[in-house]
């Protein structure tokens, strides 16, 4: 109903959709980005894309609209991750000796009780900046969000085998990155 109204040009209906789903989009963005400005950028980008793609949405249930919006948010996050890797300031993501020592300590002290442990957010972000956007995307969706391979394939428009191969390579890459700290 709201979607149909927004699609027909009803600005109030679109505003209602925005208010209803902005938290969900913010949550999806926060899986990939820690800073508030980055999350805001993803919210803005997601709803802008959704606005122009409303006529391609053919679902009828609220749940499917949420899934559709999640797909747009994930793809916006992926685009943002790729753009971030192309920026020159990415070189600043290298960890210095003190930071390397600190993250090694944090990872070792987490031990087996890793589910309740956390490492410093800034250090974790710097460490993950060494992964490609594809690696980061697939590992976050699999290991943080708990999506299945099929769900990720649908979300990213990749084939199931591509998701599996990408996940395997991403995991191997992350192991190589972490090996020096453990």
């Amino acid at each position: 109903m709201l979607v149909a109204g927004a699609n027909a040009g009803d600005d109030l209906a679109f505003e209602e959709l925005f208010n209803r789903y902005r938290r969900h989009v913010a949550y999806t963005a926060s899986r990939f980005f820690a800073r508030r400005e980055q999350i805001e950028e993803i919210i803005q980008d997601t709803f802008t894309k959704a606005y122009f793609a409303l006529d391609s949405y053919h679902g009828t249930h609220e749940k499917s609209f949420k899934a559709w919006l999640t797909q747009i948010a994930v793809n916006s996050s992926y685009d943002q991750l790729r753009r971030a890797r192309r920026r020159p300031e990415q070189a600043l993501s290298d960890l210095n000796d003190t930071e390397s020592h600190e993250i090694a300590l944090q990872l070792r002290s987490a031990g087996r009780d890793i589910e309740s442990a956390l490492v410093s957010r800034d250090l974790a972000v710097k460490l993950l900046a060494r992964l490609s956007a594809e690696d980061r995307l697939v590992l976050t969706l699999l290991d943080v969000e708990g999506f299945s391979v099929a769900e990720i394939a649908e979300m990213t428009s990749w084939s199931v085998s591509k998701v599996k191969v990408r996940a395997h390579r991403a995991r191997a890459h992350l192991r190589r990155v972490l090996r020096r700290y453990l």
Binding site: A34, R36, I114, L128, V144
Partner: peptide
């Protein structure tokens, strides 16, 4: 290493307050 990887991935997410 995989457990440590999951820990790093979770730690790099935005906080509830920021979100």
């Amino acid at each position: 290493l995989d457990r440590a990887g999951r820990l790093v991935l979770r730690s790099a997410t935005g906080s509830e307050a920021e979100t």
